[in-house]
Design a protein around this nucleic acid. Structure first.
Length: 583
RNA sequence: GCGCCCGUAGCUCAGCAGGAUAGAGCAACGGAUUUCUAAUCCGUAGGUCACAGGUUCGAAUCCUGUCGGGCGCACCA
């Protein structure tokens, strides 16, 4: 249950009833009325801005409106008290037993606590990673991969019908380069001396097994043939090999896509023409000459007529080319077709996760979506900023040219999947992120992964101790949910429970904002409340979770920390991190 | 030159679809350990939310401009 949402509805009902009774004007706009957890505990448990929002419409003073609402709110049996404060806030304090009883609610729902039907099963397409299949994933890809995956899980958690998608750029010139690089390794596997990999080809050792595999499959079939003969088969072989490599890399992070969509297929099955026809029908394609770009002028710039999409009709800076000077389709043309396909598959909400260096591409693709769907579908592009790799505070040096870059696999191998995933989600996607190999594996509170997991592990530890302390203790969730929760009345305990009760609200707001990092921050805060309570037990033995001679109190506290651990586990699930029973 | 993102404590960053006295961690200083794992906790100090206007009951948050930083700017992917 999301108690904030419940009260928001209650308050709206109250206002409607007051309107019906003639105490407030009719037909008030209630859209901006919100409920929230006040920052300051002295302001109660739930605050609403209702009275202030209605001032203008009702042409009444905020306090007068507030009093009318207060009079009704106080009748709700879970409400302890209501007060009007500041410029017209209505502060609601809840009965302690209502708050305490949320524990059984959490235990009953377990990992489902916090789920909602907010998304109403609406289809959402989340496209992420979509790296060119020319080599293994490296650090830069890692962040987008984790972000996209966690976002997808988060949206699923609040009731969207999510499709995780990967667009394979298997059609461009880079793939030809891949094929040529793989061909060299193939010759090498056949015993030829290849020497240095020429400039412009991929030198990485990861292509050696690809060459070997090709030689094993086809023997010397392609050896003395012309490129025109071997290019296509080698390209296809190498692309498949790279995609397998990439899928394996992603698997190390527990990432699996539902759909892998091939750009090449669009070229081969007429998909591009089909996509462009739709724009053609709307009169959005024409032949024209573009102005030379401002700023630095490319050396080989030539003014020439091009096939263009009129993206400026939809807010783009310039119209965009669909054909290259050699007559082939541009990457953008394929992207038109690809997004057209997404729209035709019934997605009205699409999210693409890209690196920040592709920011300049956003408007043109959004233009496509708007044009194709007549404004009905929406594409949101989330740009991920760089990850700065550090070791002991010193930048890790990487050289792209020598192929000496840190791969995703390197990172996962060194620090583990859970650490990588959590840390990647400790910043907003559009802020750059520092990843210090030393710090992220440290077992201390400045390492949020550890801090949160430690909270969970402590609960497991207490459960074991409790089982040892009491002979016939039933610590199943079903049983704990029946504990006497009214015994949980220390200030710190209530504070912890109130933070737990915030969880459904956090999940919703994170999902609506497409910001999974809010989950990480919440988990850190929640863990912090727990550690604080734990520590209070050092000074005050009566506040410890296990009270040897008092089974009732022990059970109620076990119920509380069990509920706590459920929320931690649920949050970690969204982030794709495993909770640990021991550390 | 144009577009997008960013500017919050000494440092790294949160700030919840505009809300009350702007928060956390690190670093600094002062405390707590016969422990349910102190791998933790408690306290003190630290701010012109880059700057200037505007919108309104109310702005770190929305709008405009200025300054400063990052990214991008035919046909490549």
């Amino acid at each position: 249950m999301n108690i904030f949402k419940n009260f928001q509805n209650n308050i709206k009902d109250i206002i409607t009833a007051l309107s019906d009774a003639g105490k407030l004007p009719a037909d008030l706009e209630l859209k901006n009325i919100t409920t929230e957890a006040p920052r300051d505990a002295s302001h109660g448990d739930i605050a609403t801005n209702a009275a202030m929002v209605l001032v203008k419409q009702a042409k009444m003073k905020p306090r007068d409106i507030a009093q009318l609402i207060e009079g009704e709110l106080i009748k709700i049996d879970t409400v302890e008290s209501v007060e009007i404060a500041g410029p017209g806030f209505i502060n609601i304090r809840l009965n302690a037993d209502f708050i305490q009883n949320q524990i059984s609610e959490i235990l009953d729902q377990g990992l489902d606590y916090g789920r909602s039907d907010l998304g109403a099963n609406e289809k959402v397409n989340v496209e992420y990673v979509s790296v060119n299949p020319t080599g293994p994933l490296h650090v830069g890809h890692c962040r987008g991969a984790v972000f996209g995956d966690a976002l997808a899980t988060l949206l699923d958690h609040v009731g969207y019908d999510v499709t995780r998608e990967y667009y394979i750029n298997d059609a461009g010139g880079q793939i030809d380069v891949l094929a040529r690089s793989a061909y060299l390794r193939y010759l090498e596997a056949l015993g030829e001396v290849v020497g240095e990999i020429p400039e412009g080809l991929y030198p990485g050792a990861y292509l050696i097994p690809v060459g070997e595999a090709l030689a094993a499959r086809d023997g010397d079939k392609w050896k003395d043939r012309d490129e025109s003969e071997w290019l296509l088969p080698v390209r296809s072989f190498a692309t498949d090999a790279m995609m397998n490599l990439i899928r394996e890399d992603l698997n190390t992070l527990d990432i699996q896509h539902d759909v892998f969509f091939s750009e090449l297929s669009l070229h081969e099955n007429g998909g591009i023409q089909k996509g462009l026809e739709q724009l053609e029908e709307k009169g959005l394609i024409y032949t024209g000459v573009l102005e030379p770009p401002k700023g630095k002028l490319p050396d080989d710039w030539e003014e020439r007529p091009q096939t263009l999409f009129k993206s400026t009709d939809f807010g783009d800076d310039v119209d965009r080319a669909l054909k290259k000077s050699d007559g082939a389709w541009t990457y953008f043309a394929a992207d038109v077709a690809y997004h057209s396909d997404k729209v035709s598959r019934g997605f009205n909400t699409m999210i693409d996760v890209w690196g920040a260096d592709h920011g300049g591409y956003v408007k043109r693709v959004q233009s496509v979506i708007t044009a194709l769907s007549d404004g009905k579908a929406e594409l949101d592009v989330r740009l991920c900023q760089m990850v700065k790799l550090l070791r002991d505070g010193e930048p890790v040096k990487m050289s792209k040219r020598s192929g000496n870059f840190i791969t995703l696999r390197d990172i996962v191998d060194e620090v583990g999947k859970d650490v990588v995933r959590f840390i990647m989600l400790t910043r907003k996607n559009d802020a750059s992120l520092e990843f210090d190999f030393t710090k992220v594996t440290e077992q201390s509170k400045d390492n949020p992964v550890f801090y949160v997991q430690y909270g969970y592990a402590r609960v497991s530890s207490v459960m074991k101790k409790a089982a040892a302390a009491f002979a016939d203790l039933d610590i199943s969730e079903v049983s704990l949910a029946k504990a006497d929760l009214s015994l949980l009345n220390d200030e710190s305990e209530l504070k912890l429970i109130k933070t737990m009760v915030n969880w459904p609200r956090i999940v919703e707001s994170a999902a609506l904002a497409y910001e999974p990092h809010r989950i990480s921050y919440y988990l850190y805060d929640l863990a912090s409340e727990f550690h604080a309570l734990w520590n209070k037990g050092n000074d005050r033995v009566d506040l410890r979770f296990i009270i040897d001679n008092n089974k009732q109190v022990t059970l109620s506290r076990l119920a509380m920390i069990k509920a706590f651990s459920k929320i931690i586990a649920s949050g970690l699930n969204i982030l794709g991190v495993e909770p640990l029973d021991e550390m």
